[in-house]
């Protein structure tokens, strides 16, 4: 019979290691908690404050004649947000993914470094500057409206899309692309038939990040979309509004009814981004599975 070997940790060193281990575990747990608590608070408070005012009337009607009283809703803001957000996505996604493809497909190009640098700088530009820029370049020529608002949102989205798409495209295995080239595919055929489909799910995530960011922007819209009291379907030339603009306006207003509507608007915006993200992910994963 062999002598029993003790595997129990004994001695001062082992006790110290166990203590440090437990302490670090606790520190990391607290850090996670500290990061999550504000998030949960934001969601909880928005739901608690927004839900009472979130009525069918709120979702389906525009401002009442008087904004002092309860009633009326943000339908014009929802439509403006979807209209401008949709246009901005149509503008920013093709350009952003094309730029990311340029960076990954032609990494040795002399243009690669400048493009990457400008994308980084643009990510850090305060959004009100974007509004000012579009105001100076476009609004002064063609006036306020849906289109110029969408342009400013697209500028906000572009660098986010470029950098996230570049990272995602880089993760497409070289083996896959070589497999395609070995079958006699040209570069553009490989990009469209192998690289982009393989990256579709990740690209969607990046685009949704950008969309979420753009839908929540207020500052660039103040100087480009301006405002609207009712549903605006004009492409350009009429002031347009959006959920964040309405929230901004009524949350700092003096009327309790307006503040309630602002809370409901915040909840609506949060839910909108959530629903869009879920739908986009579902579509992307289903397409990737095929």
């Amino acid at each position: 019979m062999t002598a029993a070997v003790s595997l129990r940790a004994t001695g001062a060193r082992a006790r110290r290691r166990a203590f440090v281990n437990a302490a670090m575990h606790a520190v990391l747990g607290l850090a996670v908690l500290a990061a999550l608590v504000p998030l949960f608070l934001i969601i909880a408070v928005t739901i608690a404050q927004g839900l009472p005012a979130m009525t069918t009337e709120f979702l389906t009607s525009t401002f009442n004649f008087s904004r002092r009283v309860q009633g009326g809703g943000y339908l014009h803001g929802l439509i403006g947000t979807l209209y401008m957000g949709g246009l901005a996505t149509l503008m920013a996604v093709p350009i952003g993914i094309a730029a990311a493809l340029f960076l990954t497909e032609f990494p040795r190009s002399r243009l690669a470094a400048p493009i990457r640098f400008f994308a980084d700088v643009m990510t850090g530009v305060p959004s009100v500057f974007v509004g000012l820029f579009v105001y100076a370049v476009l609004v002064r020529q063609i006036g306020f409206g849906t289109f110029v608002g969408a342009v400013s949102l697209a500028i906000i989205m572009l660098p986010i899309i470029v950098r996230s798409a570049e990272e995602i495209l880089r993760t497409v295995p070289g083996d896959l692309k070589r497999g395609s080239y070995a079958l006699g595919a040209r570069q553009w055929q490989t990009v469209f038939r192998v690289t982009l489909p393989a990256a579709a799910s990740g690209l969607t995530t990046g685009v949704m990040l950008a969309v979420a960011r753009a839908l929540g922007e207020t500052a660039p819209l103040v100087l480009t979309a301006l405002a609207a009291q009712t549903v605006v379907l004009d492409f350009q030339g009429q002031g347009q509004t959006a959920l964040p603009l309405l929230i901004f306006r009524e949350a700092r207003g003096a009327f309790a009814a307006g503040q309630e509507r602002a809370w409901a608007g915040a909840l609506e915006l949060m839910a909108l981004v959530l629903v869009l993200s879920i739908v986009a992910r579902a579509i992307a994963t289903r397409r990737a599975a095929r």
Partner: peptide, 26 residues
């Protein structure tokens, strides 16, 4: 050249597509 001279790699690298679409790719 590559359409006439095909290549099979060390690590199997099927495309993330259906079996049918893998064969029909070329």
């Amino acid at each position: 050249v590559r359409r006439r001279i095909g290549m099979v790699f060390q690590k199997p690298n099927p495309f993330p597509k259906s079996i049918y679409d893998n064969v029909a790719f070329g």
